[in-house]
Nucleic acid binder design. Structure first.
Lengths: 328, 328
DNA sequence: TTGTATGCGTTATCAT
DNA sequence: ATGATAACGCATACAA
């Protein structure tokens, strides 16, 4: 492995001069600088990250922590993060699983962006307490070193429920996320509020898990309860699209037709939403922007700037799964 | 930042004793070891990765390099990689973009798994030449430090073409990937061979790009050439599913019906394939296993073991997009 | 069993 | 403008 020592020897200068030259300091003659750079290139010199990190106490890398690597949301989110980070000479690494948490306290990364419910809030707080910089996308957490960039879950859920109410529904099934999910909890809050405010509507909560299986189970539950298909269409709000897909799958085996017998709305507007039949009405938000804002925030915290929690707006995307007007 | 020096001071021992204790060496009394560990925990000690990496010249991290973070293939692939690596005490980081290549030469990772055509083969070879360990999933590259884990592209393409031939087609449209794509090139080789071997069939190549837009363009090209819809169904083999989806999108605006007027086969069997209507016949392979094998190989190279190039088998998944028998 | 000392490759502070 | 040198935090060969 060729180090600055080798370059120094070759160039007949000291290692400090080499270091200055490589880092573009103006404390060295253009001439020697050029000579050193030439030798470095010739020797195929590459700096050693470990040594630099050890000395500088920074890595110029931001870690993104995800529950898993699947999931449609991540692609665009990561793209948004990467765009911003690269522009500021930072690199991005994506991690998943408890084992990888060490990257933060061991100082392999300068900051973290977390979208992973399985990452304990207490653990995060303890890292923040140690001085590590964190942006969370999936919970409320207050600490000088932690910033939040959250979806406007409440607005989204309200939009969904209002849409179903406008279609004339007075009985609403809502399929929730897993216990402990901040997004699910917040969306449910808004659901309840909106339903209550409507006065007349009835709310039936079905426990889900944000995965396809949750939607399948919900479909079965509803099929059991709704024996007569002539009692008018059924309204369903799945708190994410993934479950709506599972719901579709199970319903395909029944006699009920989505869009006609069942009006369903999802949340996230994943790519699949526009390909399943009928196309799924859903709550949309810019995943790219979400990532971009998160990246900006984490860099600001690192730079010591003041930051305020951010909130991303959402919109309703109307499609055929719940598009037709229905007055009972 | 608390270091072993602080622990040593607190425990009244030397830093080497602390180091031994923390690394579970048997050169230290159980008693002192326990005492040191207790102090370490109390002080909330976390080792500094940079210092350890600098000294040990290894990071226990494997980097995976992808073209982008979108793409359905990646989720399962990464899952397969992670499973194996975590089992062997290795961590996984996912990177994308030229900027992140530095991770390898700067020794931030012990090895790389590459599925990214934009990663120059020459660059990879130069890294291998410097002693870095690499597994490639998307090209043939021979070097003692490089191993290949490739799909059986030829078998897959042959399966697809044979299926269309069996349906009775004698005129086959094939939508290729971008120039320079190894997968596309190999699949085309097999396509040509299989068509030639059939004797009677005619092959029409349409240049694509492995993205949705490629499929859309291909659909337009075919719509222009095929003015009369009564000349029997058209056979299309998209060299990946993503393009097939684009093809569907464009065809939805025409009068031709996929599965009836058009028989189409894809490659990759992405999740969407089973949700678009009609469901897409495709070439399937285990993405999880692909990742697992790649991870095993890179660890073997690192361990200095001999490895041989691996090849993953593929199968045809018949669905309705090209299911019906058709004899002209 | 424990302590001393050295070096990993860099950066950065002082002299010169 | 350049050089000598001291850290950074850890692992380890060698001494005691």
């Amino acid at each position: 492995m060729v180090s600055i020592k080798d370059i120094a020897k070759q160039a007949g200068v000291s290692i400090s001069t080499v270091s200055y030259a490589l880092n573009g300091s103006d404390k060295v003659t253009e001439e020697t600088c050029a000579r050193i750079l030439a030798i470095a290139k010739e020797l195929d010199y590459v700096p050693n990250a470990a040594a630099r990190n050890l000395k500088k106490r920074e890595t110029k890398i931001i870690g993104v922590f995800l529950t898993d690597f699947r999931g449609d949301v991540y692609g665009d989110l990561l793209y948004g993060i990467k765009e911003i980070l690269n522009r500021k000479e930072y690199d991005l690494i994506v991690c998943s699983g408890k084992q990888s948490h060490r990257m933060l306290p061991e100082r392999m990364i300068d900051g973290a962006i977390v979208l992973d419910q399985t990452f304990d809030s207490e653990e995060l707080l303890s890292y923040a307490e140690r001085g590590h910089k964190i942006v969370v996308l999936d919970r409320e957490l207050n600490h000088p070193h932690i910033n939040q960039v959250l979806l406007d879950n409440k607005a989204g859920a309200a939009l969904a429920i209002e849409h179903l109410l406008e279609l004339g529904h007075r009985k609403l099934y809502v399929v929730t996320g897993p216990d402990g999910s901040y997004d699910s909890w917040q969306r449910m809050q808004a659901v309840k509020q909106t339903v209550e405010r409507s006065g007349t509507a009835e709310l039936i909560e079905i426990h889900g898990n944000f995965e396809k299986s949750g939607g399948e189970h919900a479909a079965e539950t509803i099929l059991r309860q709704h024996v007569s298909p002539d009692s008018g269409p059924i309204a369903v709000f799945c708190l994410n699209d993934e479950m709506a897909v599972g719901f579709y799958n199970r319903m395909a085996e029944s006699e009920l037709i989505i869009g006609k017998d069942i009006h369903i709305v999802g949340f996230d507007n994943i790519e699949l939403a526009q390909y399943i039949q009928p196309r799924l009405t859903s709550i949309n938000y810019s995943k790219t922007k979400w990532g971009a804002v998160a990246a900006e925030q984490v860099l600001k915290i690192i730079a010591g700037e003041d930051v305020e929690h951010e909130r991303l707006y959402v919109t309703l995307v109307q499609r055929e799964s719940a598009g037709t007007v229905f007055i009972p």
